[in-house]
Design a protein around this nucleic acid. Structure first.
Lengths: 160, 160
DNA sequence: TCATTTAGTTGCAATTTGAGATTATCTGGT
DNA sequence: ACCAGATAATCTCAAATTGCAACTAAATGA
């Protein structure tokens, strides 16, 4: 009858839910597609913008260049994407999904739909909408410059 | 004008918000108290249940025993908690917060309050209540046996 | 043509963490 | 009383992850 949390903080609750959901989902994605969520995200980006580049991917995802490089190497090794030299700049290469890559992307998409249904099972459709809306707003907030500044002010106030 | 996410999945949104909030908060907690969130959680547990044991902490937090051991060593090293041998079983030791530990806990508590105010700045009080309620429910769900089983069924259906 | 900048890769080292061995202690059966 | 497990907690070691910085290759521009 233990609740996982009682009066806990919002961040704590967020963390529990995010952590549990992601860990469980990631294992399933890996089992069903051979890819981890992070790789699938890159695959999706490439599939949505064929001919995108290494630098674009690194910029959009925010991953380190070395990490980006390794993820792309994995995807290429699994024959999910191909690289083609740019005709304009031989340092640059363009990324495309293979047929297999497109298939995996679809499998992942459908799986993701089903997993999200399971995750949100205890919520009414109204609650689900509300949650999406609120998280959207919070997501914008926590990634904003204003948020960092608000935190900075708080810290300076405390120690100053 | 880039939104951090558009049509993204719930888990993705959750992850962004949780990750950003936790990373930012953890740095501030460390700066202001010398402890990371994880350590503070253990400190809080001990302060709330004086005389609790290693095994209890490991069970409640779900941390590995080796990790739990290291966290306790840190807290002892920082003089925030003390260990006392159990009179009943010499293998067991009982944990207590020191005066300094209680102080740090209070500092952390107040800081946590303020950080949560900042985090939820863009939400109305009604939305905040709704979010808390929904996350509570989701937290219970994702840590339940039923959730794992629902995922198992989904996977078996897919591959079977 | 040479110096500088840019694209992407790779080697290396720091960090984190978990599994399993290890030590110390307890409990129960004979 | 003694021995054979069980149990509490620690510690060692090895695997995985990741970032930094050095590196190669190609472009740019003076």
């Amino acid at each position: 009858m233990d609740k996982p949390f009682k009066n806990e903080r919002l961040t704590y609750k967020l963390n529990i839910v995010a952590q549990q959901a992601i860990t469980a989902n990631d294992a399933i994605f890996f089992q069903e597609t051979g890819c981890h969520i992070r790789d699938l995200r890159v695959l999706r980006l490439i599939d949505d913008t064929p001919g995108t580049t290494f630098a674009e991917i690194a910029k959009i995802t925010g991953f380190e260049r070395s990490l980006t490089s390794r993820i792309l190497q994995n995807l290429i090794g699994s024959r999910l994407i191909t690289r083609e030299n740019s005709t304009e700049d031989a340092r640059v290469f363009l990324l495309f999904t293979t047929g297999k890559g497109k298939e995996v992307r679809q499998v992942a998409r459908r799986l993701s739909d089903r997993l999200e249904v399971i995750l949100t099972d205890p919520l009414s459709s109204q609650e689900l909408r509300a949650l999406n809306e609120i998280l959207e707003r919070l997501g914008n907030w926590v990634t904003s410059e204003d948020y960092s500044q608000a935190l900075d002010r708080e810290v300076n106030k405390a120690s100053g």
